[in-house]
């Protein structure tokens, strides 16, 4: 079970792009909290703290708003165009005993035996859909790949999932595979071949020629 981080939030009254831009300049992230039949509240959280939570991949947090603390799930995170700053966060109020469906990232651990022999490791599924209690959401699912030889794979059914977590994806689906070595590509020959420039076909150009032929 993942440890829940605490994040302090403050209520915000103003909305609109100018006021949230001001908030972001001050090092805060505009956010919203909803769910559990309670009214929707506009809040702001610390950008630095939010980055820490994202890096730790914690799905559930203890959100301290004023004097009361409530558990919430990070429902959605919006980033800027460069993906470096968090622009907005959606939190959903949740009971820790409530069952939720989330996507958990798959992480590989170790260096596959097959890659040392020239094989190419491919992580086909980067996420796995799971159903579990909100308090039991794992931060990540780790796959040990050290013994994986060429042409060997790990299916979703073989993943070591913590107790109380149910996988929703097809258990036969391959999530990590080591492909055999590729043929050596002659890059110089390819580059030379690329030097010649041909023209692409123009859609409708032939029709015009035909039409002009008919006219004459």
């Amino acid at each position: 079970m993942a440890k829940r981080p605490l994040i302090e939030a403050t209520k915000r009254e103003q909305k609109g792009s100018h006021s949230v831009a001001r908030l972001r300049k001050e090092g805060a992230v505009p956010a919203i909290i909803y769910g559990s039949g309670a009214p929707v509240e506009m809040i702001s959280v610390s950008h630095e703290r939010m980055r820490e939570i994202i890096e730790a991949r914690s799905r559930t947090v203890d959100l301290k708003l004023g004097s009361k603390s409530q558990s919430a799930i990070v429902k959605d995170v919006q980033y800027d165009h460069l993906g470096s700053d968090v622009f907005h966060v959606d939190f959903e109020r949740i009971e820790l005993s409530e069952t939720v469906r989330v996507e958990v990232s798959i992480e590989t651990h170790g260096v596959a035996k097959g890659t040392r022999l020239g094989g190419v490791l491919e992580v086909v599924h980067k996420h796995v859909s799971v159903e579990c209690k909100a308090g039991d959401i794992p931060n990540e699912v780790v796959v040990e790949i050290a013994d994986l030889d060429i042409d060997q794979f790990v299916t979703i059914g073989q993943l070591q999932i913590p107790e109380g977590v149910k996988v929703l994806d097809d258990p036969a689906a391959i999530c990590v595979v080591v492909h055999p070595p590729r043929k050596e590509v002659d890059v110089t020959a390819e580059a030379e071949a690329g030097a010649e420039l041909a023209e692409p076909e123009v859609i409708g150009a032939k029709k015009e020629e035909e039409e002009s032929g008919e006219e004459s």
Partner: peptide, 11 residues
């Protein structure tokens, strides 16, 4: 072969 579209509407 350098990348380029196969078919274009306008050259």
């Amino acid at each position: 072969m350098a990348l380029m579209p196969k078919r274009v509407k306008f050259r």
